[in-house]
């Protein structure tokens, strides 16, 4: 468990997050049709991964810690997946 990265890495990640926030805001003013949510979601996922890997140290942690973080992600997929099973099929006949 070598701990954490240099302050330099943190600054770069922070700048990346801020840049992505700007991108999200700018893209929100362009109409991409169905692509609107897709792009917003994509950027959100990238930001989430940056936070998890660097700020939450997942990248530098032991296997067991990663397993539990992965379980958290899997549980999120359970939630989104089964909620979508309801929302998307509500109007099927």
């Amino acid at each position: 468990m070598t701990h954490a990265a240099s302050p330099r890495t943190y600054v770069i990640v922070l700048l990346a997050l801020l840049a992505l926030t700007v991108v999200t805001t700018v893209v929100a003013h362009i109409d991409l049709g169905p692509g609107n949510s897709a792009v917003a979601m994509l950027i959100a996922v990238v930001k989430m991964l940056l936070v998890m890997l660097f700020f939450m140290h997942i990248r530098y942690e032991a296997r067991l810690t990663r397993l539990f973080a992965g379980a958290g992600l899997l549980w999120l997929l359970f939630m989104i997946g089964l909620v979508m099973a309801d929302v998307l099929s509500r109007n099927w006949r």
């Binding site: 359970f78 089964l82 099973a85 309801d86 998307l88 099929s89 509500r90 099927w92």
Partner: peptide, 16 residues
């Protein structure tokens, strides 16, 4: 994976 059994008559999709 089973929570929707509380919502059978709440307006949830029948397929869910």
């Amino acid at each position: 994976l089973v929570w929707g059994h509380h919502m059978f008559v709440a307006g949830q999709s029948i397929y869910a």
